Amino acid sequence: MATLVSSAARQPDGLIPSGQLWLARPTLAACLRGTIVRSTVGHVLSDEDRINRFPATPLCSLSWWFTGRSEHLVPQRPDTMADLSSPREAYPGRWVLAGPQTRPSSSHCAGPTHAMMVMFMPDALHQLTGLEPQALTDRMVDAQTLLPPEWIAMCEAVQRQADDAARLECLEDFLEPRWQACRPTQPLHTQRYGDWAAHLAQRAAMSAPGRSLRQLERRIKRWAGLPLRELRGFGRAEQAFFDIIASDTAGESVKWADVAAGAGFSDQSHLCRVTRRITGYAPQALYQGIHREEAFWVYRIWV
């Protein structure tokens, strides 16, 4: 069954222990990157603390709400992050299917909320359902309009389970035989973005006749929803993120130039541009938000 690997019990002082990251059973490691669970039930939060900040991501996701509901905060301008004064949009449907997101996003929960987001590798979702991640890029849709009927029955079954562990077991019991039947011959078992992008490029080169650069790019974009260049950018950004956390854990001051060089960026300015594009924040502002603000809980549990 899924394994709880990170929880908000490790949160900095003053921030609530409300988030969890679960990793899938080993047989689904190449299919699911992880599952994020968030519950604010029983906690007293300010309106500002009920904002949720999410980075851009190459992953697809499927979300459930067990208590409460979230609203999407729409930024006033494309180059700004949304806040409490921003317009709000209801998420579509009872369960929400999202494709790769090229921009950071924010949501708000008006009251106590308990929700779960399962994160699929986009090529795995394509293998399982036939859906094209490219057609879902930067979209969030009602899952009932796109997923096959047996998937909708699974969503309903997950909704009825008594706790998070049972919900994950129900989901994994559904996925495991289907993934074993359709997974690539040599699936990747480690899921760092950089490794996955390299593996995807190799699969594209070997999977069918026609190996020109344009044909390979089309194949990768069909499987992943994003071009290889963007996937590699996510890989560098993730490496920088983990390098920062490693320095922080060791009690060392973060040296941004060293982080940039170690993750493969051309210089510190390059790191800043990519970090702002993926998260909406400059590296130092993101670092401070992770340590001080409730809204950045998803970044905290990722490590």
Rank of each mutant, 00 (worst) to 15 (best):
L136K: 07
F120E: 04
M121F: 12
Q159M: 11
T129P: 06
Q186S: 08
T113P: 03
Q186L: 11
L136I: 08
T113M: 10
L146T: 04
L171E: 00
L171T: 04
G99C: 08
R103P: 02
A135V: 15
R183N: 04
G130T: 02
A165C: 10
L171W: 09
P149L: 06
Q101D: 07
M121V: 14
Q186F: 10
F174M: 07
T185F: 10
T113Q: 03
D173Y: 03
P122I: 10
A110D: 13
Q186I: 06
F174C: 08
D142A: 14
P187Q: 05
A143D: 03
Q101P: 00
P184T: 01
M154D: 06
W95I: 09
L131H: 01
P92W: 07
A115V: 10
P133E: 08
F174Y: 15
I152E: 04
L168R: 06
L97K: 04
A166P: 04
S107C: 06
H114L: 13
G111F: 06
A143K: 01
T137A: 15
H108D: 01
V141C: 07
Q101T: 09
E156L: 05
L125V: 03
T185W: 11
G111W: 08
A162G: 09
G99N: 05
W151D: 08
T113H: 04
W151V: 08
P148R: 02
L146P: 00
Y91E: 13
Q134K: 15
P92A: 13
M116L: 14
M119T: 11
A110K: 11
Q127P: 00
Q186T: 11
L168Q: 10
V96Y: 01
W151F: 11
R103L: 08
A181W: 01
R167S: 04
P112M: 03
E156T: 14
E132W: 07
R139C: 12
Q134L: 14
M119V: 05
P187D: 01
W95Q: 11
L175W: 05
W95C: 12
